[in-house]
Design a protein around this nucleic acid. Structure first.
Lengths: 338, 338
DNA sequence: AGTCTCGTTAAGAGCGCTCTCAGCCGTAGG
DNA sequence: CCTACGGCTGAGAGCGCTCTTAACGAGACT
């Protein structure tokens, strides 16, 4: 561990070979774990140690055509603000954990402007990364098609609304929403409203479907309001619901952030939660534990989404076959709001 | 734009040269914007277009020794949970914006375990990235020293508590805290307490210092409680303060998340905010707009921290000199809690 | 003892790019 | 008309690695 200095002075395979008294090829074999005689293996290992040799990544990539780099593309502008609901941080963390196991590095690309779209395409075309994960892009996004055309492994979260649909990892939004509503039925609620999410996003659409499914044969449904997954929109929607159906006694809200808004609106309107109105959210973000009262919600396994996206993509990169879609379970978390 | 297909079939400099009827060197010059005769420039450009040529990144890196990759290292486990206070997402976003302008890619490394530390060092030693940004690492972290030894440009956020101190970009925690307290004095509060952050983190230490500074010559100070930047700890600390000094009429809380906890504790204790007790937070996270009542706080320019870290690092990578420390201003945001 | 086989190693050819260096041509000056 | 000089261009070396190919030595068999 003497040198390892910057720039051109770094030890190469050749210098290690010279020091160990073997050929470059033998050193390469040792470094890559291929079989060699114990004698030379030992002397190579010692030389590597003494020189502080670390393989040059670019040189290796040039010949193997592998970069060991995996890209995660996140949209920068959307109703789902980058950090608000902790979805992206969670996904990043899950992805990162899984990539670490495979000794791959994570390249994060935030796709905001047109320019950054072009930049991502260029980067992928240059074979700068081995595979790409796409999270939460809008239906009309041309990126999946473009990347598929380039011929690089791609995995999405949530099934795409667009024409080209890469393999994807999603959660059981319909089932989760239905579970939430059934819980409200179980505790005896009779007029159940919902605050849905935007109807151009999978999460928004499917959670509303789940609500409808669970109440299909029931007379206990109330009305539907639509928000955009932000806290403010949840508060507004709740006010609206209270005006339009003052007798409602439960609300299923399609996101925790909106549910917090709803809670505030209910408090302002003088309704007690859960006594007068039961509220149930979706996502189980950290905030849900700390709302007043703590929020009953449907947990979405965010970390697991990231992990599974990475796993699926790594399989694809290795040339294995994978299922077109993978759906992760959601889970009811009972706290005090319902 | 016909080919650009995967694998070995991609067009190279040579194929472009052949098609354009010039040498490889000339194509390289055009691609890199060096002067050539308009005639050959034009035919090269056409050949590039027709073949869909994109330079191979690894090959370029191999000879130039530049990777155009910049690493951002974030600690994965800490009291500051990865996503809670939106600090990391904000920094990521700022960094990303700035790197995009310089056409660099962002490699995200979450440093949790010992193993990941080793992996980061190895990756950097392999000259896999041109520079490294370190965010919020603990005082005793060996990473800054290790990276400096390798001889790679490094920039931190917040000055390091450890022995080796790379250049860093921080915010004016002391000044911000003092401003907050002065605001409380201005609105006539007479018993001002504080909930401080952990005293092994810069933010925790400096914000407490600012509180003390502003009250140095005043008789209007109350007591100090310490939290760990989490919402729960804020609530607990607030209860404690109320027990120990029931007559306090203001609290400066060292983070918005803790402030939200404090708000809830005050509500439970039957105190009105701001009438009975004024509360002021620090950070101005998104949540601050939606607490009940909306939180007066000190805004920390999170995006700007990211941007400036990236700018400083890019300067270093280009071989320019930079200031050892850069301090960004904080700003009082008056809402309704104080 | 000679031949064949097998496992191991050394040599060398690239991967696709940049960059130096010499060669070329055209113009200006002697 | 010949030499000097300047700008472009092309040839070629080499970045550090992997992987194929061929050589080599040791052991088994005829």
């Amino acid at each position: 561990m003497v040198r390892a200095s910057a720039g051109r002075g770094r030890p190469t395979l050749d210098s290690v070979a010279a020091r160990a008294g073997v050929s470059r090829a033998t050193v390469s074999r040792v470094v890559n774990g291929m079989p060699v005689t114990p004698t030379s293996a030992e002397s190579v290992r010692r030389a590597v140690e003494e020189l502080g040799y670390v393989p040059n990544h670019a040189a290796r990539t040039l010949v193997t055509q592998r970069t060991d780099l995996i890209a995660l593309v996140l949209p920068e502008t959307t109703t789902r603000v980058f950090s608000d609901d902790q979805f992206f941080p969670g996904v990043i963390q899950g992805v990162s954990q899984q990539l670490e196991l495979a000794d791959k590095q994570l390249v994060l690309m935030l796709a905001g402007s047109e320019a950054s779209h072009a930049r991502i395409e260029r980067s992928v075309a240059a074979h700068h990364v081995d595979g790409v994960m796409l999270a939460s892009l809008h239906g009309a996004d041309p990126l999946p098609a473009a990347l598929t055309r380039i011929g690089i492994p791609v995995v999405c979260n949530e099934r795409s609304l667009g024409p080209t649909s890469p393999p994807c990892v999603g959660v059981d939004n319909v089932g989760g929403a239905a579970t939430a509503v059934r819980h409200l039925l179980d505790i005896g609620r009779t007029r159940i409203a919902t605050i849905a999410g935007p109807q151009d996003m999978i999460g928004g659409i499917d959670r509303l479907t789940g609500y409808r499914d669970a109440l299909r044969d029931s007379a206990r449904r109330s009305i539907v309001a639509v928000g955009d997954f932000t806290l403010g929109s949840g508060a507004t929607a709740m006010q609206q619901l209270l005006e339009d159906d003052p007798r409602l006694d439960a609300v299923f809200v399609a996101s925790d952030l909106m549910a917090d808004g709803a809670l505030q609106a209910l408090r302002k309107a003088g309704r007690r939660v859960p006594d007068d109105v039961a509220v149930i959210g979706f996502d189980d973000i950290a905030l849900a534990q700390y709302t007043d009262p703590p929020l009953t919600t449907i947990r979405q396994p965010i970390l697991e989404i990231g992990r599974q996206m990475a796993r699926q993509l790594l399989r694809l990169v290795r040339g294995e076959e994978i299922e077109q879609t993978m759906t992760l379970p959601t889970e009811l978390v009972v706290r005090q709001s319902a």
